[in-house]
Amino acid sequence: MRSLSEILGPVMIGPSSSHTAGACRIGKISSIIVNEKIKEVKFYLHGSFGKTYRGHGTDKALVGGILGMNTDDERIVSSIEIAERVGVKVEFIERDLGNTYHPNTVRLDIKTISDKNFSIIGSSIGGGNIEILNINGKDVYFTGKYNTLLINHIDKPGIVHKVSGILSNNDVNIAYLRVFRDRKGDKASMVFELDDIVNEKMINDIRNIKNIEKCVFIEAMK
């Protein structure tokens, strides 16, 4: 059974929960994943996003999210001008990303001030709900509804146990856990969706585990 919030969508700047609220959330989560000042973003807009992004405000919502705005932030309507003022270059490109993706999908190719490059694919599936599906060419899956830990690591025995132990020792409950890898012993990703907040000490403890390369915490979307 769907909740009222899933049907009506979040408190937001309109006109559409899927084309604006969802787009804003994809942008904001992408900025958290990057975790560094952004200087350039190319938005590759798939399906309905590509056909209607100007009329539905998807372009402004995506940029607002990249700048850290929430769905109800009145500055979203001026987000592209704000991005220009603060030195963030944005470009919108209609692109077929393949028939496996939802019509409201976008790939964000992001460059940071230190010239690091990120590529993130997210879909807005209705009612402001989203799915993050790919980060830097690697498949992932999370929705932003839960507090989320994204962990990049080398696929070695015991890493899941060690991270879970830190969470358990701090009374953090795991709602969902997914592990993604291409090959045994290669680079892998873990996604922990949690019922509780993770503090900075816990994040540092996780980062100090051998063979963990990166750990990012994303607080549940409001």
Rank of each mutant, 00 (worst) to 15 (best):
D73C: 08
G165C: 07
E81A: 12
G27L: 05
I203P: 05
D182N: 14
I212P: 03
L177R: 07
V77S: 13
N173Q: 12
E94I: 06
L8I: 12
S119T: 12
T71D: 09
Y53D: 10
I32L: 07
V106R: 00
I218E: 01
T71E: 10
I13V: 15
I32M: 02
I26C: 02
G22F: 07
D171R: 15
V86P: 05
G87S: 11
G57R: 03
P157V: 06
K156Q: 12
N170C: 01
I113Q: 13
Y141I: 01
I80M: 10
P15Q: 04
I174V: 15
M69H: 07
I80N: 07
N152K: 15
I26E: 02
S30I: 05
S164G: 11
R2Q: 11
Y53H: 15
D182C: 02
I38G: 02
N170A: 10
V198R: 04
K201P: 09
I135D: 00
K111I: 12
A61V: 10
I113P: 08
Y146N: 12
H161L: 11
D109M: 07
M190D: 02
T71F: 14
F217P: 00
D195W: 14
I159D: 02
I93P: 02
I125N: 10
N134Q: 14
D196Q: 05
V216N: 10
S31K: 01
I159F: 04
D72K: 12
S114D: 13
S17V: 02
L8W: 10
G87I: 09
V77P: 00
G55H: 04
L177M: 12
S5C: 08
Y141K: 02
N170S: 13
G64S: 10
I66R: 04
F92E: 04
G128D: 02
A23C: 14
G22R: 08
F92Q: 03
F92V: 03
H56R: 12
I209S: 09
K37A: 11
E6L: 06
V179E: 13
